[in-house]
Amino acid sequence: MVMRKARAVAGARSKGNELFKGGKFTDACVAYGEGLDHDRYNSVLLCNRAACRSKLGHFEKAIEDCTVALNMRPNYSKARLRRADCNAKLEKWEASVQDYEILKQDNPEDEDVNKGLLEAQTQLKKQRGGP
C-alpha cells in the first residue's frame, strides 16, 4: 500500500514535470493535483502546482499552495520565493517583504532575493504614502 502510494506520487510528479516543461500548465496542475490526492501534504507537489497556478495567473491559489508547503517545510526556500513573487504580483507588498526578508537571512548574497526585497520595500513605502 505504501509502495503504491509512493509510485502514484512519483508518477504524478514526473507527468506534471513533463507537462510543465511543455508549457501545458493547466494539465500539469491537474497531474500534480492527482499526486496530492495520494499525499495531500507533499510539499514538492504543492510547490510545483503553485508554479503552474502562478503561470496561469492564479496567484491566490498559488499562495495557498506555497503556504501549505511552508507549513510542512518551513525552510523550503523555493516555496517561499514563489509566494513572495505571487504576493508582489498581487501588490501585497507587506507579505512579499516578509518572505523576502526571511530568504535574505538564509541567502544574503542572492541577487534575485535582494532585488525582489528592494522592489517590494520600495512599493510598500509608496503604498503607505512615503517618498
Rank of each mutant, 00 (worst) to 15 (best):
N42C: 09
V97C: 15
N17W: 07
E101Q: 15
N87I: 07
A69M: 04
S77P: 00
G116F: 02
E18M: 06
D110T: 02
A69H: 03
L56S: 10
G129S: 11
E109N: 12
R128W: 03
V68L: 12
L117R: 10
R80P: 15
V97W: 09
V2Y: 06
R40Y: 03
L36A: 03
N42T: 00
S77F: 01
L45T: 02
L117T: 10
A28T: 11
K125V: 14
Y41A: 13
A120I: 01
E64V: 00
K5D: 08
K5S: 09
L36N: 05
G116C: 03
S43F: 14
G129K: 12
Y32D: 12
S77G: 04
S54E: 11
R80H: 13
Y76L: 12
N17P: 01
D99L: 09
E34Q: 10
E109C: 04
L124V: 02
A79V: 07
V30K: 13
E109Y: 07
I102R: 13
S77N: 08
E64G: 00
R53V: 02
E64A: 04
N87D: 11
V30T: 09
G130A: 10
R40T: 02
Q127N: 08
K21A: 08
K55E: 06
L90P: 05
V97H: 08
N114M: 03
V68E: 15
L45M: 06
L19R: 03
L46I: 02
R80A: 14
C86A: 13
A6Q: 15
R83Q: 11
N17L: 03
V68Y: 06
G57Q: 05
A84E: 10
A79H: 11
S96P: 09
E60Y: 05
L70G: 11
F25I: 06
Q105L: 15
H58N: 15
D65Y: 01
S43E: 15
E94I: 10
R4A: 15
T122G: 06
I63L: 01
D65Q: 10
R13F: 04
L81Y: 15
G57R: 07
K5T: 12
G35N: 04
D99I: 06
L90Q: 09
H38F: 12
V2G: 14
N48V: 05
W93K: 12
D27M: 07
K78H: 12
P108S: 03
E18F: 02
K5C: 09
E91R: 14
G11L: 02
G35W: 00
D27N: 07
K89P: 06
H58K: 14
P108I: 01
Y32S: 11
